[in-house]
């Protein structure tokens, strides 16, 4: 379960997250929507305790992100944006390393690795160096490392970004399958993804939560199309956003 309570994060003059609050229950797949630069990644980095919020807090998997960051990280599976990996390692060595860091003992690690290799369709590349893999495989290795300790909470930052349609389909299938019992947050700026996998969506722009509801509700508010609603609220408040953008350029 994830409870986010008025998280705020500033980088200099830019407010990347402005009093963001939302909740995710087990069995839910929350789509975290917003234009590029809306603060999606920042929020996810805060939830995985990579960044500290300036104010506000959150509870992830029952642990407070400020008081027990290690506890949070033990309970969460996280795929950062672009799924960075240690390219010089083989897939097997990399997954073993993650098990070791997570303190999974050797016997359990073997079954865990076999399980995620199967789940993420990685059979056959166990001995291959990660740098020689295609983008789709790399992304699946990134997902596999997040599933190793079978976390109840998954935070996935643009998990399908840069994949071809078939690979996107596979990843979405996987998320949908896992979403039945786990608590999952995925960020995206692709609206079709929301319909494909999410049971609920939160739309943010300029660091603020603008809407929170099921895809159907949001679509109804936009007069039948999610795109329209997304444009309405992100560009509607975006007149000032555009102005702020040009101001920044002026300063630069």
């Amino acid at each position: 379960m994830i409870q986010v309570d008025r998280i705020t994060k500033r980088f200099g003059a830019i407010t990347a997250a402005d009093e963001i609050s939302f909740e995710v229950q087990p069995g839910e797949v929350l789509g975290f929507l917003g234009p590029n630069g809306a603060g999606k990644s920042t929020t996810m980095k805060i939830l995985t305790c990579f960044l500290k919020p300036d104010s506000g807090t959150a509870t992830v998997g029952g642990c407070d992100i400020l008081r027990d960051p290690i506890g949070v990280r033990q309970r969460v599976g996280y795929v950062p944006e672009n799924a960075p990996l240690y390219d010089d390692m083989t897939v097997g060595a990399f997954l073993k390393f993650i098990c070791e860091v997570r303190g999974i003992d050797a016997g359990q690690a073997k079954t865990a690795i076999e399980r995620v290799m199967h789940e993420c369709a990685l059979e056959g590349v166990y001995h291959q160096a990660i740098e020689t893999l295609s983008k789709g495989y790399k992304r699946r290795v990134g997902l596999a490392q997040a599933f190793l300790h079978d976390p109840q909470t998954l935070i996935l930052d643009e998990p399908t970004d840069g994949l071809d349609p078939n690979q996107k389909h596979d990843v979405r299938e996987m998320i949908r399958r896992m979403g039945k019992e786990k608590c999952i947050v995925i960020s995206t700026h692709i609206l079709e993804e929301v319909d494909a996998v999410c049971s609920r969506a939160v739309i943010i722009a300029k660091g603020k939560v603008l809407a929170d509801g099921t895809p159907e509700e949001l679509r109804a508010r936009g007069g039948g199309r999610l795109e329209d609603y997304f444009r309405q609220i992100t560009v509607g408040g975006g007149a000032s956003a555009a102005a702020a953008g040009s101001e920044k350029e002026g300063v630069a």
């Binding site: 290690i70 950062p80 944006e81 960075p84 860091v101 997570r102």
Partner: peptide, 14 residues
């Protein structure tokens, strides 16, 4: 540079 620092420091590691 490669961003793996985010992977490493979101594992249960101080």
């Amino acid at each position: 540079r490669t961003g793996t620092v985010e992977l490493l420091l979101t594992l249960p590691v101080t």
